[in-house]
Design a protein around this nucleic acid. Structure first.
Lengths: 225, 225, 225, 225
DNA sequence: GATGAATGAGGCTTCATTCAT
DNA sequence: GATGAATGAAGCCTCATTCAT
């Protein structure tokens, strides 16, 4: 039972949180973290009972906090997006430093995201969440801005090919990070950074090919768009 | 209900096949094709009854031919691997042609594989099959030889970076091709070739980075290896 | 475990019944009968697993035959309605006999319905069935005609008060027959005929009061009417 | 959210009530009233959390006052019985008035009981209460006396048939008042008084039939009797 | 004393697999 | 050999009841 990220995770404070008891808050947080880990290890269809067991609570406690699977996925999504946003902002600061190399910052951002299994969890694509959820939408907008800004710096520096957008990067991160059923987690982890690096090499300017399709953005993967 | 590949698929003749009635043979083949399509459309967890219905047979007929899910997956794996092998051999022939450009042949092979959804199905990594199955092993060996040969030609021509192996290519194909839950099939299809192309651009020589880890082969993804 | 009715019950032949195996037909019938008995004894909310156990089949067999509770209730409703219809037709024949006394025939009909627990089951009022179901509607129409005809004969003979309709009779039968939770079935059975008789005495002409409201029909109890 | 009775309801003072804080007393009373309303609207199986919510208290407060469902049902039963008793005493006074017509008073009593949904709640028959509970027994005895007296007056006046007892009346009231699942409350309300009236007409002397069974009393419906 | 939260048992439903025709 | 039907295990979710603040 691995924990994908090691730093303490702040509970996502939403405006409507009324006044939760201390132990309840802790339980809620443990459930979200357990869910994140379970999703990483077993995919989005992991039984909720398994998540409850990991969190060390009864299954009904999980249901009290999250009426159904999508509510739980939503919370994990907010958690993950906020973490990716933090990574993107850190990378942007590095890019803006006097001796910063934007593409290097972009690469560090991508590898950090992969290292924390965040891409695989990114439920931006998931069928389990309401695409019009306000909180998710806001998180997506902020994330879009941050990653776009980071990529823009690299492009302006002539290091990033011009025909890609943030959606292209995220699809690659998400897909390359996903667990391969039947393969041990650790085994794949050894290779994910490798293949991400190959993809990043493909992103560098000058472009080595003419890409089919058009640059992808998050909006391309919103249902009903 | 789309059929991933349009050419007629020969049933994989295994040595122990005793002697089936004509209609039984046809049933078996229809089940395998229905399974492949169902896996492509609904993922690896599609109910077997759904596959039987698609094949137009009773569920018990499916079980008569394939004692359990893994037996069916195995057959689909053989089918898919044989198809990929054919694509690889075609590409190798192109590479060996007088005016052949090996890397271009490699790229066409990769895109063709993706176009037929073969990568996504590649159960080489699946938890559902016996990694020591003789038929699968043989198919894997032949496929390894073919793809390695193709890559070797591109490497010899100075078009492919030296620090990658066939496992790297296949993981990328498999992962990038996998369906994104919640996203329409068609939508993702539009982008898969794009992101595969970015990956292929990263594979080109000269290498634009030092890759972490080591070159991946099929063997790296055999369980218990 | 009492069986409410002792005569063999014909499976309700619906037009779409394709071709059921003999044992499957028997199972289906046993489930419907078990459901009827269970509804009589424990009410409409009896667990489906309990019904399956009574019928001597696995719970999944019940679900194969009846996708959800309402499908099962519907079948029981058809069964019950057809039986009541038969009783009504018998009573009508008695009323039309040379020495027939229409009100006596009506009373025998009511008591027979109660004796078979049919009224309590009459899901005409149930929340579990689709009020627009064609088969149920047809059964209701035929039943309405039969009971109305029977009452009309009694009214024409001057034995039935003029200000009541078939709905009034059925509500009383249904309500008076319902099991009283916490009371043994047999105990209540002893009294149901008694109280039904008091109600029937109230139906006789001449009317001993002015009734509030208006004469009730089945239509009054169709939802969305 | 209708309140069945509009007059203020005195908490039933039991001998062992020790000494409750003012707010505790109020909570207890609110819970009982909420329970009564919830039972009327949603039946005996309404979730206790729903009752607590209606009462505006936490669920644990409900459990502090009533250790389990039957304790709450018992309290509602006492409340309802005391209210019916009051109605019976009022009716008796009317019957005893100089120009009083006993059967009319009896009828008004029955209709008033129905109007307040008291019959439907009458847990005299319920499986949820201890039949030997002293308070309930006492309430039952007093109620029996009052209703018997009222019926006796009507019988003495030659207006009530001789072969019925108070149990017959109560079963009819209880059964005819019960909600029909799937039918709007209001809809049935329109007919309950109508069918009660038909039943009352059947109670009138002279008897129009020979009743089966024997006259029913409350004792007939005590479990284990 | 009052409260929100936690719990486990149980009902509903699906699905891989086995059985009878 | 082919089929439809039967089965039980397991997942999802609710609710009566208990616990910790």
């Amino acid at each position: 039972m691995t924990t994908a990220a090691t730093e303490p995770v702040r509970p996502v404070e939403t405006a409507r949180a009324p006044k939760l008891r201390a132990d309840a808050t802790r339980n809620r947080e443990r459930i979200v973290l357990a869910a994140r880990d379970a999703f990483v290890e077993h995919g989005a269809d992991v039984p909720l009972d398994e998540i409850a067991k990991r969190a060390g609570v009864g299954n009904a406690t999980l249901y009290r906090n999250f009426p159904d699977r999508s509510a739980l996925v939503r919370e994990v999504a907010l958690l993950v997006k906020s973490r990716i946003l933090a990574l993107a902002e850190t990378a942007t600061a590095e890019a803006d430093a006097p001796d910063g190399v934007p593409f290097d910052a972009l690469q560090r951002f991508a590898h950090a995201t992969v290292a924390e299994k965040l891409g695989a969890l990114c439920p931006m694509f998931s069928s389990h969440v309401d695409p019009f959820d306000p909180d998710l939408t806001e998180a997506r907008v902020r994330l879009t801005a941050a990653v776009s800004g980071l990529m823009e710096r690299a492009r302006a520096a002539g290091e990033l090919r011009a025909d890609v957008d943030h959606g292209d990067l995220f699809i690659a991160i998400s897909q390359l990070t996903r667990p391969l059923p039947g393969t041990s987690c650790q085994l794949l982890d050894d290779f994910v950074h490798r293949h991400l690096q190959l993809f990043l090499d493909g992103l560098r300017a000058p472009a080595r090919s003419v890409l089919p399709g058009r640059a992808a953005t998050f909006e391309d993967f919103q249902p009903h768009h």
